[in-house]
Design a protein around this nucleic acid. Structure first.
Lengths: 108, 108
DNA sequence: TATATATGTAGCTATTTAGCTACGCAAATG
DNA sequence: CATTTGCGTAGCTAAATAGCTACATATATA
């Protein structure tokens, strides 16, 4: 193996996905984030480190608190990768659509 | 930890992502898939097992060959999860758009 | 200034992962 | 019917992961 630090790796963990969802709503301090989970605070701290390394969040200190903010740009890479599959399921939907139209026409 | 068998886990590995891309184009036999990679054939076989467990591919045997086919439906789960973030970057794009319009107007 | 608070780091463990070689088995072929 | 071919499984290893407790450090507060 090899340490993978990319958005795909980042979202593989459900806790990290939940953190990202939290940060999608608002910027939050490390402690505030951790309060949303059962896991120990250092565990969440580590997840935040991973998310930073995967370049999905930014941090900035304010006093003794550290605020984390979503960096939406790298999220788009997942979206872009999905593009090629999206075409397939849209095609299938179209096919289903056509099929349903055909049934409709036969009825007429 | 706990064995995670979901589409997010499936696409965390780059080899598995590449397999999915291959299968997006066409159904392929296990051997044909393996030929596209440097990894040993059993390694690819294991990735195929994981992808099956994550419910992203289907297999059916034809003679001594086993053909694998993309199951696009579970891919959509990733797409659906991304939805909430897509809103954010679309908003930002709109904001940029508005900003650019304002500049345009000022020039006029 | 002593204390409380916010947060990261060190260091450990159990589990999972990705990879390999060796092997087994069923289907096709000579 | 012996052999080749296609493919999964067993069993191993090194590395990564996710989790924890204990500790260090810096900032705020009494």
């Amino acid at each position: 193996m090899k340490l993978r630090r990319d958005p795909f790796q980042a979202i593989a963990d459900p806790t990290r996905r939940a953190i990202l969802v939290l940060l999608a709503a608002q910027t939050m301090s490390a402690g505030a984030i951790a309060n949303n989970f059962d896991a120990a605070r250092p565990t969440i701290s580590k997840h935040l480190t991973v998310l930073s390394e995967c370049d999905l969040i930014d941090s900035n200190q304010q006093g003794r608190e550290i605020f984390y903010e979503l960096k939406v740009d790298n999220m788009k890479k997942i979206d872009q990768w999905l593009e090629q599959f999206r075409k397939i399921w849209e095609d299938r939907f179209e096919n289903l659509d056509n099929y349903l139209s055909q049934i409709q026409n036969k009825k007429k």
